[in-house]
Design a protein around this nucleic acid. Sequence first.
DNA 1: TTGAAAGCGCTAACAA
DNA 2: TTGTTAGCGCTTTCAA
Lengths: 346, 346
Amino acid sequence: MRREVTLRDVAELAGVSSRTVSNVVNGYANVTERTRVRVERAVKELGYRPNVLARNLAQGRSGQIALVVPYLDTPYFSELLQSVIRAAKVSGYNVLIDQTDGDPEHERGFIAHGSRRLLFDGVIFSPLGLDQQALADRDPALPLVILGERTSDGTFDHVGIDDVAASRQATEHLLDLGRNRVAAIGDQPYATGEAAQRRTRGFREAHQARGLPVREDLIIGTPRFNRPDGAHAMAHLLELEEPPDAVFCYSDLVALGAIRAIVSRGLRVPEDIAVIGYDDIEDGRFSNPTVTTISPDKEMIAATAVERLLLRISSATPPPGLELRAPHKLIVRESTVGRSARPPSA
Amino acid sequence: MRREVTLRDVAELAGVSSRTVSNVVNGYANVTERTRVRVERAVKELGYRPNVLARNLAQGRSGQIALVVPYLDTPYFSELLQSVIRAAKVSGYNVLIDQTDGDPEHERGFIAHGSRRLLFDGVIFSPLGLDQQALADRDPALPLVILGERTSDGTFDHVGIDDVAASRQATEHLLDLGRNRVAAIGDQPYATGEAAQRRTRGFREAHQARGLPVREDLIIGTPRFNRPDGAHAMAHLLELEEPPDAVFCYSDLVALGAIRAIVSRGLRVPEDIAVIGYDDIEDGRFSNPTVTTISPDKEMIAATAVERLLLRISSATPPPGLELRAPHKLIVRESTVGRSARPPSA
DNA sequence: TTGAAAGCGCTAACAA
DNA sequence: TTGTTAGCGCTTTCAA
């Protein structure tokens, strides 16, 4: 590999100091038009490219942020990832991806003071199995934004939608349809299942608000929010003596799995069982039937997360930890109201 | 931010030179048991963490590889991404993601000698609109592995499945079913549509091998391989005087879109129209009906790509450019044979 | 086996 | 406005 052209080479050719070249390259300070032109010519002539690695070391920053999610093959996260990359790029940041498989140990390592620490200037984190303790133990110098609702201790921001309200709205939609044996798939009644628990709370609130009893046996837990778990849970529900006539699924994937289980037994959605999901992934817009869902504003979530993170990175004194709430809406499709729902474009 | 503990601090405390500390930290060379223990104790006592940025500069490498794909919200790519990250991590590499939106200009920039060049030691690239010219103009020093079939000029590797054979196999499956008006959705008869064209070639070969005519009006082009395009193309086919009785879709997403279009018009899959896809994404295993597809061995594609790239990175003299072919198989599901196909686990 | 010291290429404090 | 120069923290050649 031939030696790279350095700042000094440029400086020499242009007859200025490397300091000046640096200024020109970075658009800093006041540089005479004359010198600037001269430097720029030298840059072009030599084909000079700044060495990012050297700049990183000198500045003590990497120009990268990390996005840490539990699973990457989950459409919700890949859609989000896309928006995050787009938002970061606008500010010249690169995005480093990692997936934790929801492993708490792995998640912990990511925000602890590890050797990879300097690879990124901050982290946008969507934790699954991370408890408050791990959060408290984290590297306090690492700028952090957490996705999903979570009580902030004031040292990081979090951004997400109002899960309880959204879940309540979803459940109410099913009740409005006149269904009276509404099930819920996705509860996670253990320490790290906060997000799931908020959805269950919304589910209960919807019932309570109407003076309806919650059928506890219709609340089914799942380890993950994916299709197989949804199908499995639904299969269980269908074997009950009195199966549900509607199901609130804690993700669209769970809903798609559930629908699959229902249909493969010869039952119909929504005639026999209405199904509603959560996340509004593209799959649900083209599935058969299309899936009614809670749609979080992903673009805004991503943009807000990146914006807050970059602010946190560039601030000398850390800004207060905010709890930011993105909007969501209910999108009614076939899985709850049948063909009367407007079909998609095609 | 308090000053970081450096190598020198450790050396001082341990009473050795920084060279020795470096050796210990990296597990290099021969170090006396005694010195090693002493250094390790000092490391622990001071809570020393190597500074990746400094190491990068000193070594002239970043320990990162880039994965460049056209779209990230496409399940095929997110599934692949997952495997690539996993494979890279084994060798201590991080993965930087970028999406090009299929924009040739953007794609070009990625392999040209840009200023971001040093951010990654090599690139795994899944181009969409990249022509041979752009490939030839690229930074010759950048280790490169291309995904998908493509003629290598010997300076990079590519890894993919045998598209022609796979497409032929898919088409034959439809013909075996006794269908005789088989359509194809996804052709891209322009310069950058190589992958699509290979699928069309397989489609033709299957017909030719049986002495059947290809109905040219049943070959439909689509700008992208996604659901909306699939639905749109299918809508067009359904309006023909003599619509097809089977469709070979160039991706599972296209197939899902097509199925959606068929079903929403009250027709049945596969009774009225059989549909086969390509990619074997999870969606197709839980859709209704489930989607018959060509399944490339993604895990192997990812592992092979990473392996070749790392080899290329670490080689003093560049290894020859290989054309590597991963295995694929036909997976028969409901969209071609109906419920007789074994339903998925649930 | 270990030490001394010269880079890696850039940034930025200080000086002019 | 521009030059000088001392780092950034590590790796690694050369010497001992």
